[in-house]
Simulated assay, not measured.
Amino acid sequence: MEQGRTCSIIIPFNIFNNTTGSKIDPKETKKESKGTQEKDTQLCNSTNKNKTSTDRPGISRWSGRKASVSTQHSWAVASYLLVSEKYDIVRFIEEHDKDLMYLDKLQDLQVRYYAVRATCADGSCFYRGLAYAYLEILLGKSEELKGFRERVSHSRDELLAAGFTEDRFKQNYDTFISLIDESEKDGLVDNLLRSFNQPEISDSVVQYLRLVTSAQVRKRGDFYMPFIDEEQTIEDFCVQNVEPMVALCDHVQISALTQALTIPLIVEYVDSLDKDVIQHVFSQGASQSVYMLYEQNHYTVLYKREQV
């Protein structure tokens, strides 16, 4: 089976494709980003769906979780609505056996990956999946966890520099730091998974990561400007496409967040128009990379075979 092409997107878009040598067109990227924002229809159910976030008036944490995922995924049980238990990739592929445009490419992933961990498709699947998967990798690695804690701590200063007031993010920041500290002390996957399925913890982490992403985009506004819709300013993009809890995530947001917190990430991109699975490298570092699958406007955590 073909392993597909690899595009290194440590800095997104304005780079050369490693296989073809062709430059990525920012206009095409904008179209793809806009399409992604419009298509995600798989939404998760929550027993707290009417609860409204107190961290930012007017944004409901639960407004997107309307349709039950129990008919979509066999992992969906009451206690794991946000992040699933890890399960065999074969089972995941079977859940997509009617998606003929994607099926062959998903089957190709079995060569490199043995399991997946699904995330709720509520608009925050990328942020939630990335945060969980990276902390899971760091469990039992005290020095690396301390390094990540330092980077998250430093991001607080970046938020202030970007113009966010401390009362906008303090609660979410404190929750995230506490979760990192508990991960270092505890080191158990089961407890980390339980924490990420508690909305008051999980959504706080997501909301903080969104603000970190927004601050990074604002900080490097001149760089990112060519890759957003022409009618938007950087401020508009961040307010509309980054900060709301239901705003979907695309290349700009991924690049900004992984660079801001130095999170090594590789995304396997499955698209109906491409013949092969396209692998995007967004950031690389000394620690083990997070692997994620992007297909049909949704992100799923992948587990590489050598991680067994």
Rank of each mutant, 00 (worst) to 15 (best):
S155Q: 15
E143C: 06
G140Q: 11
D174W: 00
L159G: 06
F169R: 02
E166A: 08
E150K: 07
V152P: 02
K170C: 07
S155K: 12
K170W: 03
F164A: 01
S153F: 06
F169V: 01
F169G: 02
E166M: 07
E144D: 15
T165S: 13
G163I: 08
R149A: 01
G147K: 08
F169L: 00
R156P: 03
H154P: 04
Q171G: 09
D174K: 10
E158F: 04
N172Y: 14
F164H: 01
D167W: 14
N172V: 09
A162W: 04
L160V: 13
Y173F: 15
D167I: 14
A161M: 03
K170T: 10
A162C: 06
F169E: 03
Q171N: 14
A161R: 05
E158A: 00
R168Y: 04
E166F: 05
L145Q: 15
Q171L: 13
E166H: 12
S142I: 06
K170L: 09
G140D: 10
F164Y: 05
R168G: 03
Q171F: 07
D157R: 14
E150W: 05
S153A: 11
A161D: 05
F169A: 02
A162T: 00
K146Q: 15
V152G: 00
A162P: 04
K146S: 11
K170R: 15
G163C: 09
Y173P: 06
D174E: 15
D174M: 10
H154G: 04
K146L: 13
E150A: 15
R156I: 04
E166L: 06
H154V: 03
H154S: 07
R168H: 06
R149C: 01
L159S: 01
K170M: 11
L160F: 12
E158P: 00
L159K: 03
G163E: 10
Y173L: 11
R168S: 05
F169H: 07
A161F: 03
R156W: 01
F164V: 00
L160W: 07
L159A: 03
G147W: 04
A161N: 05
H154E: 10
A161E: 07
R156H: 04
K141P: 05
E150F: 11
G163K: 02
R156M: 09
L160D: 09
S153W: 01
L159N: 02
R151H: 05
N172A: 15
K141C: 08
K146D: 15
D157C: 07
L159V: 08
F164C: 00
Y173M: 07
S155E: 10
G140N: 10
A161Y: 00
E158T: 00
D167V: 14
H154R: 14
E158S: 08
L159I: 03
D167A: 10
K141V: 06
S155M: 13
L159R: 05
E166C: 03
T165G: 14
L145V: 11
S142N: 09
G147H: 04
L145P: 11
D157V: 11
K141R: 14
D167N: 15
D174A: 12
T165E: 08
K146H: 13
S142E: 14
Y173C: 04
L160E: 10
R149Y: 00
R149H: 07
H154I: 14
E143D: 13
G163Q: 06
H154W: 12
D157L: 15
R156T: 00
K146W: 10
E166W: 01
V152M: 07
H154L: 11
E143P: 02
R151G: 02
F169M: 02
A161L: 04
